[in-house]
Design a protein around this nucleic acid. Sequence first.
RNA 1: ACGGGUGUAGCUCAAUUGGUAGAGUGACGGUCUCCAAAACCGUAGGUUGCGGGUUCGAUUCCUGCCGCCCGUG
Length: 323
Amino acid sequence: MNKLTNSELAEKLLSERKVIVIGGATASGKTGLSIALSQELPIEIVSADSRQFYKYMDIGTAKPTAEERSIVKHHFIDNLDPREYFSAGKYANEARNTLNALFEAGKIPLIVGGSGLYIQALCEGFFDDGTDDADPDKASELMAIRNQIELELAEKGIETLYSELMAIDSESAMLYKDKNPRRIARAIEYYRANGIPISRAKKQYKVAEINYKPAYFAIDWQREVLYNRINQRTLQMWEDGLLAETEKLLKMGYERELNSLNTVGYKEVFDYIDGKESKDRTIELIAQHTRNYAKRQITWFKRIESLKWVEYDVVAVLSALSE
RNA sequence: ACGGGUGUAGCUCAAUUGGUAGAGUGACGGUCUCCAAAACCGUAGGUUGCGGGUUCGAUUCCUGCCGCCCGUG
């Protein structure tokens, strides 16, 4: 096989409008690998991590350090206030502009993150029904509907909501046989906001045009090794001041109920602050919940056909890209 | 050492008057097109500490041993 030089490879990737994606489990070394890659190719990093968007949440989300961020330009880190509403769709719309700008500047976008849905939204696209999610009026209307449904759920229970969904959108109802309240609420919410079943919208509307091609990678570890890394990192987080960071967030007035703070690490520390759990137990729980999360991430990425599981090794990624 | 208690799934516990064991949690697997580090669903784990006895049948009753806990020495 004839290997390409890095500059040849870069040229090829740019002309093909390839975006490199590094997904996979938390603590698998995505940050390290992406920075190593940036030493080889003209890259800028586009984060796809639904919690690293938020300011002030540094230790708990294992954000790249300031030093790491000074090596390569990172997008979509610290771009949100913890109170701001965000979603996979909004992310995709915004990040898409970033990708285009990067290509124009001759940079290869490197998407790095563990939020599978966000990566999917960006790289595969959601159906586009034409609503402008940047419109604040639309947003507050949606929130009102969502709150209303949440209320109904609390009062009437999931069975009632499920029957309602069955009546307005049986196709979605069949899809959510597990009666996941979130999914059911979302389907009902879509119907109330737009007047058509979401299952129909999915078919009726095309995805926004995507003029780039993802090359998916994820870092593969034996489960036991990954779990050790997670346990280790959890310990490190605590030593690095996770408690102080959490207290600071509360002092700044951010409520625990915020979606941004419904996050492994912070949740458990809240209980510690309340005296519900000991320090050791808190660390144990964070590690455990992180392991559970990692498992869900792996499940998600497994279903991406074209994804290559690679070792923590830049050369492996480069040679895979050269093919 | 003596008295009392206890020993059931990896962990915490449950099992009506004796009818060959359940739940939570964890583990494992999965779902999910816009709250996704979220929210859900499923599966597998137990010769009920060990031995003996009573009984058609014992986690449940009797007994010996072992371990643990509490109290008294």
